[in-house]
Structures are given as C-alpha cells and as structure tokens.
Nucleic acid binder design. Sequence first.
RNA 1: GGGGUUGUAGUUAAGUCGGUUAUAACGCCGGCCUGUCACGCCGGAGGCCGCGGGUUCGAGUCCCGUCGACCCCGCCA
Length: 600
Amino acid sequence: MSACPLLGGPGDPMLKNVRRTHRCGELRAEHIGQHVVLQGWAQSVRDFGGVAFVVLRDRYGLAQVTVDERCAPSVKDELGLVRSEYVIEVSGEVVARANPNPNLPTGAIEVLASGIRVLNKTEPLPFTAETAMQAQEETRLKWRFLDLRRPTLQRHLIIRHKASQAVRRFLDSEDFVEVETPILNKSTPEGARDYLVPSRVHPGQWYALPQSPQIFKQILMVAGMDRYFQIVKCFRDEDLRADRQPEFTQIDIEISFPTEDTVMEVAEGVLRAMFTEIRGMTIGEIPRLTYADAIDRYGIDSPDTRFEMHLKTLTDLVANSASTVISGGLANGGVCRGMNVKGHAEAASNKVLNGYTDFVKRYGMGGLLWGKVGAEGLTGSLAKLLSAEEAATVVAALGGAPGDLLLVGVGAKSAVNPGLGRLRAQLGRDLSLHQHEFSFCWVNDFPAFDWDKDSQRWVAMHHPFTSPKAEDIHLLGTDRAGEIRASAYDLVCNGYEIAGGSIRIHDSAVQSKVFTALGIGEEEAEERFGFLLSALRCGAPPHGGIAFGFDRSVMLLAGTENIRDVIAFPKTTKAQDMMAGSPSPVDPAQLAELHVKNLG
RNA sequence: GGGGUUGUAGUUAAGUCGGUUAUAACGCCGGCCUGUCACGCCGGAGGCCGCGGGUUCGAGUCCCGUCGACCCCGCCA
C-alpha cells in the first residue's frame, strides 16, 4: 500500500490543509493509481467488520470509498465515527473494484482510504437525499436544504441556470440590453392584487412590488434603448396553483419599431435557445392560430396541441331537438359541442363517466352527455335525448366509429368551451394521447376587452397598454368594444401559456381612448399612469414586446408538472415559506416606525 | 371566498363496531459480520394520534370548531 507523502492518517495536521483534488462523480477507470482527496456527504455507510464501504456524494455524483485490511488501523477508527449524511474528507488511492457496479458511472473504481476526516456531523435527519421522495412534500418544504440535496432538484436548478444563460447569450447577440427596473414601484389599479411596502419617510404612503416591469420597459423604449430585456422577479398577490407562485420570474423583452412578426421571431429565438441548450432540440416552424380558431378547435386559448381530438360544433344538428335538456341548453345563445375519444367506449365505465361529468361541472357545465358508438348505433345518454336521425348526424359529424366514446356538452359558451377544452387536455394526459413530447403554437388576435360581470365594465384582456389591431381602432368609443381585437399574442407549449405579449399603444390619444373604454377617467389615468402618458407624448416610438414565464418554461424543460420543483425556495399554496417561516409577525416598534397599525 | 384529498414515533404508513399496554417498516442507538451497493443478523430507545372544545363510564376512532399541506373553481391585466 503506497502512501501519499502528504497524507497521513486522521488528525494529521497536513490533511487539514489539503483541498479536494477531484469531484466524486468524475472518477473513472483512467484515474486508477492516482491519489485523490474527496470531500462530500456520506450517503451510506456499510460496515462488514473486516471491510467497510462509504458512498460519498457531491454535486457531481457518487464514489465508493473502501476501508479494509490494507488500510492503517487508524483509518478504521475514523470510519467508525462516520454516520449517514456526515460531511467528510477522504484521501486515498483510486483502485479497480473487485465487484464493479454497472449502475454507477463511477462503478468501475473505488477509493481505498488512507485517511478519513469528519468535517461536520449532523443531527438525525427527517430524510436524506436518498429517501426524500418517500417523505411528504410538507416535510420536504420545511427541510428544503435537505430536499435540495436530491440529484433531481439539483439537476432542475442547473437546467434553470443553463436556460437563463442561453437566453442571455442569445439576446445579447441580438443587441438586447439587460436593464434593471425598480422593485419598489407605484401601485397601479389594473390587474392583480399588489404586494405593498409601507414607506417610512412618507407616512401613509406605499410602494407596490412590480406585477411586471411593463411601464418601465415601455419608458425605456421612449428613452431610445431600442431593445431591452431583463430576467426579473414579479409579484402578484393572488391565490396559487400548481403552476403559479406569488413571486415568479419573467424573461421580459421590449423592442422599438417592431411588427408583430419582429417580436414573435425574437421570442422564437429565445425559445429555441432554451430548448436547444437543455434538450438539444430543433424546433420547426411554430404554427399560428387565432384566438377564435383556438376556441373553436380546443375550447381554450392555451391548447395542448400534442394531439388532435378537436372539438366540433353540433349546435345546428340538434337545434330542433325535442329534448328539453338540449333546447334548454341552447337557449340564450347556448351551444352544443362535442369530441370523439377514439376507441374509449369500452373503458368508459359509469364510474369513469361520472368522473368526467364532475370534471366539467367545475367549469359551470350542467352535465355531460355521452354516447358509445356500437355496431347497432349509438347508446348512452346522448342516444336517449336525440332522435335516431339526429344521433346519426352527430355521430357522423364527430367521425364516430364502433368503439368510440362521444362526449357532448350543451349550454353557455362560457361553460361548454372551457369544460370540454379542459377535459380534452386532461384526457390527453390520462390516456397518453400525445404524439409529441413538445408541441408549440402561437395564439393571436385576442379580443382586446373582456366584459366583467361583477363590475359591469370592460377590462383589458391582456393589459391596458395593448394596442388594438389597426383595422379595429375605429371601433374604440363605439358600442362594439367587444369586437375589437388586440395586437396580442401568446406562445403556448403543451397546454401551458409560456409567453405573452403585444404591440403597445404609442399614441397618447389612443391610450386615452382605451382608458375611457375601460372606465378609467382622465383624472384617474393621469394620477395612476401619468408618467407613462407623459412619456407617450414625448416622442414615443412604436414598440412592443413579450414576457416569458421563466419558471413555467423551466418546468417544461425539466419535464415536471410542479413549479415548486424548479424554484430553489418556493412558497406553499398559502404563500408561506415553510423553511424560513415567512410571513411572520414583526415587532410593534417596527410597525410604528412605518406608521402601520395591526388591525388583525 | 368555494369544493375535494389529507394530518398517528425522526420518516412513511396500519389502526375493524368507541373498549386492556396505539402497531409495522425504514431511520436512530448498542453489538456481531471480509465485497456491499435498499447489505445481513441480534438487542434497545423512541408517541401532544395537528390544535381546541364537546358527547361518553371510556375517544386515534363519533360531533363541532380551528390550523397547516396538496389539487381544483373563482381570482391571476
């Protein structure tokens, strides 16, 4: 056993000054014969008395450390102190394994220890990197630093890093300049609920955290920056979902003198930069469909285009139905729409169909009509309500063949479209209908305004700075506001909206008309957005842009369906950080200084 | 704001019709073991059954309330 002249046993003062020479995961057969120093976590300790193994883990992988009769007795003593997840330093010689492990990249070799030193101990842990996935998410969030030891989560963080670097490289090469914008902002009335920050020096006044840097990036265009981007945190105080966090990251982009195509091409460049970097993928031409087409084919404006199963409109075919269910559903502008789940009739038990019905009811549908196509025609609730002739036309319209399951909804558009549309997306996942791993599309020509029933007014579908399409601008100020289309576009991947943008209004007169349409008075507009309106009057160039939901993009790149998996320190659905314990009460003196009183 | 699922040892779970001392696996601690890689074997410690109240002779179990986690609707320009 050759000993490295620099390395003695444990307690050797020389050892304390030795830095690691290699990373665990990089060791291969080519390193055999070399003396190495490794530092990392003891993933497992297997002691057989005469021979013992420690699996050492660092970010780069696992390496097996062996202690046997070839080692000095002091090494064995040191080994006895090592427990699972202790941080240790091991020096030794890389040797070929007697029993190689083909499941491990480093499985051909092991490190025969000449010294083991405990760098730090650990108290008993609720779970380890190996057992984390067996723990509940609540436990894992509380002990996030342990969960983050998992190679999967480390991979996600690295994917995130690589993706943002690739985006920066691409945008830099396209002459975009990354400019930071304020986190302490002015509150604006439109949009999501603001996170507010009290001002100490201005009693009773508040900053708002940005929901997005929207106004600042437009003002940078007025300033002549021409091409801006920023990878930036945004904050929205709304209830959360699996793909939504209260603070999230956008790739924010703005361009002067663009057409819609200019912005979409840049966005596609960003998309390709990410997917090439992480997935090694080449993305072909990305199809564009209008909002109206998206609703027509998929029921929703963020369609999962990895599979077909388009929705079909059946309203005309059943318009004269004797069924009160159908005539009732069609009253007041209701529609009848359906889809064909090919070959799914047999698998669709009552329990399964009830599940589908419960699913669509969440979106306001009264129920779900179903029909199974058999050799002798249609059976099921659909067949009961329709005449034989009607049934035949519906089956034909949906392309029904024996063995198919037809799902049909009747009622208000606002219920049937999302109900069937979301059910379609869910069935795509559940029945593995996807024909591609990734499928992208653009959705454009959105309506500019959406009628809000609660407040009885028009609200901006995108945001209030979105330009109406040039050919629709003349409708501003008329009673046909609902027909105005916006110069807005969303980039959709696998049913997720991953980017959204628009051409902005650069004419303060048009901007005023839009504010009027939104019921925002001149005075209020001046009070809330005066600085933007002022900028628009001072030589604003035509401009437009887009913002990517970066967390969602990384989620897709990483192949996970939970946004918390790609955020180092995420919050729960109640917007709490289980590890840090935020939010939390503060000292009353702190509140007093901020002129804030606790009413709760 | 609403709906669904959920909370028992460090962790993950079982716990019947309300009934004796609340089980198991993994982990932890001690011992044995010369080629493991989810090592194996022997022994041991470990409990605010989320929290509060109620019903009952008796509550992990039934009732009411409350807190948290996850998923969904509303909401999220």
